[in-house]
Design a protein around this nucleic acid. Structure first.
Lengths: 229, 229, 229, 229
DNA sequence: GATGAATGAGGCTTCATTCAT
DNA sequence: AATGAATGAAGCCTCATTCAT
């Protein structure tokens, strides 16, 4: 999120302020054009999907000329990749915050679920891109290794492993697999919320229930004693 | 999926020749062209993704002319939709078989997980399309209601509800939400298996663990008594 | 000229007659589309130069759709290359005819000059492309070896060598260098005729004089005895 | 060469600094920017051809900003034209020197050939531009009259005419045509040397032989008595 | 004068779809 | 029904040129 300047396209450096005069906060000629393009791109990609989105639409939404996009990104593909990395950073920050929350593993995992869905709720376009477009075509799933997403899974897996070592969680389960299952569940819930139109699904309640499912399971009279009404 | 291809129709029976020129060898008797096209489409869509796949590639793989595809499908979009519905029928059959398996709700859900992953393992291209392309661009998630997939979720949700009514499963959870969570988890596992290259992930073991997670939860000393080593 | 089918672009073969019925000379659906495109291309390239020529202009001049060009040629570059090879074949045929003409080396070389300029006069657009565009940018002079042109020079050089061995021509001169010098002179004359607008320069007279220069030299009272008025 | 054209008023006098910032190290005193741009342009045009060359490449090679080029030249076209005129001046100077050399017409023409090829050898990039790019697209051959080149041909033609009037050269040949033929031969030799990579062709020997061809012709026992080994 | 970020018109090329055979 | 050559709309990207600083 912060300072992810990767993938500059032209030989010219970042279009920073022409003159770096000390007390010059505003009036920069092109303050954050890259950011404006990224922000426009999330919206357009979310609304129309990567393949249907036209570069010129993004340019228009960003309030720049078509060609300007290519001063900041090598290609339309590069724009999507950069967008992933940029937004995944926010997702990761959110995840890290969730994992820093509680004391017990159980509490931390519940927080992961809750905060992730809250993030989705707050930034639906970002969610759309990260959730839907992420799975996209071979081009981006197979040929692009997606390190940020790998990090996402790794953090969850580590939290699970910690819980196992602390004796809180059963240890006969693969942490990476648990991480994938949890992410898959979260992602599917998010997708249904995005697609159904936000309103038919209550993400807050969904978070609570997802916690129950993963922590205590579906079986009656299990870990969930005392929680049933 | 088995009758592959040929690239040129093997004639048989009546001389379908457009114009009865004497020695006409390639007259194409049109046996099951639609099926051949669908079979070719799964492979191509799975390998290259919907947007990158070219109609002519599918035609070539199916052993028909480009134009022939349009005798059976209205458009490339329609081909994808038809493909979904066709393959989802197989997925649904598989699901129905799973739900008819055991006696208890718990057993049935475990079977769902196991059989679904077995199906994935058996037909990776189909899985690729159903799993990855399904999420595809807004075009198909938003504008197309996808009735087969809805049926898929409904069947699982009903099984959960049945388990709740039978007192086997805790009843404070929304069956539809549980269905989505379970599907999401399954789907993500499937995806990782598809993408990682089959071999690094053991789907059989994954099925078993997914069952534990959903039925008994992650918490130690919960429903899972007696199962830990 | 004859049968130079090189560089077919698509996977489909040469769009030959649909049905090769024996006595079928006319009515071929796409008889010579490739030829029509090449013919249009000479005109457009000659008139505007390769870089300024637009593919759509060529398509229009050929009476085909833009995309059709790409059924026959891989790219605009390929179109130019193919054009060279096609027209150089005509130039080579012409050269071969010239070299087969007379008995003595001197007569043959005079014929080369005369027939070459006659060809230029007859097909100015072809000449423009072969003469001007041939020299073009690095792309086509350096990266493309231009075998037909090499053949052109080789044939002249061989004729010179033959003349030397026959004792007709002085033997202290490099045949390849003589070939280049002769071609350069011819080419420059052609160019000036093309550029000046045909009419100010009399190519017939030019041919005669070029013959004198190369065969007998500029010096007075030399080989040219008896020819001065 | 000197004082050419300018296309932009050269200012003088007042301190040109935009803002008199104290420690401005790279204020570029604008010494000879125009020359630096031209020098960079020869190299770039020679290496990549006019149409492939990018203005920004030239700017970079010249060590100036893109926009600066437009302070000295109206357009990319104008830059090429100016470059021609600039370098042709050098070529003309060289030609004038050659023509001032010997006493007899024959000696002067031999000197023209020799000195021209020596110039080519010394400044290949210049030669590339003058030789290859000169012929370039209709845009520059047809719409631009190229006065310097006309002067080049005129000087040679005049030398030929002088030789004819002095009785040294045969007078049944058109001096302008002889000039074109000689230039064409020279140019083709130069081109082959440029393209073949310098080394495979010996320009010194080529000059000597070209002299023989043009002065004495190819025919044995002609003007060239006593010169054959 | 100098800069270089921004512009935006324009071209090559792709590919879903059509239709004469 | 089947073919596959032809179509032509549309999009990504380039790059000469401008202009605010």
């Amino acid at each position: 999120m912060n300072g992810h300047s990767s993938r500059r396209a032209t030989r010219r450096g970042t279009p920073t302020t022409t003159r770096p005069s000390p007390a010059r906060a505003a009036a920069t000629p092109t303050p954050d054009k890259r950011r404006r393009i990224l922000d426009a791109a999330v919206e357009i990609f979310a609304a129309r999907g990567f393949w249907s989105a036209k570069v010129s639409e993004i340019a228009e939404a960003a309030g720049v000329a078509d060609g300007t996009i290519y001063l900041y990104f090598k290609s339309k593909d590069d724009l999507l990749i950069s967008l992933f990395e940029d937004r995944m950073e926010a997702v990761l920050d959110n995840l890290r915050a969730a994992l820093a929350t509680g004391k017990s593993a159980v509490e931390r995992l519940r927080a992961v679920v809750r905060l992730h869905l809250e993030l989705i709720e707050k930034y639906p376009a970002m969610a759309e891109v990260v959730t839907v477009e992420l799975r996209q075509s071979a081009k981006f799933i197979k040929e692009y290794s997606n390190p940020k997403f790998a990090e996402f899974l790794r953090l969850i897996a580590r939290a699970v492993a910690d819980g196992q070592m602390a004796g809180e969680l059963r240890s006969d389960l693969d942490p990476p697999l648990v991480a994938r299952a949890l992410f898959g569940a979260l992602d599917e819930i998010a997708l249904s919320w995005l697609v159904r139109g936000q309103g038919k699904v209550d993400l807050g309640r969904a978070a609570e229930q997802l916690g129950h499912i993963f922590i205590d399971g579906l079986r009656k009279n299990g870990n969930n004693q005392g929680r049933e009404p």
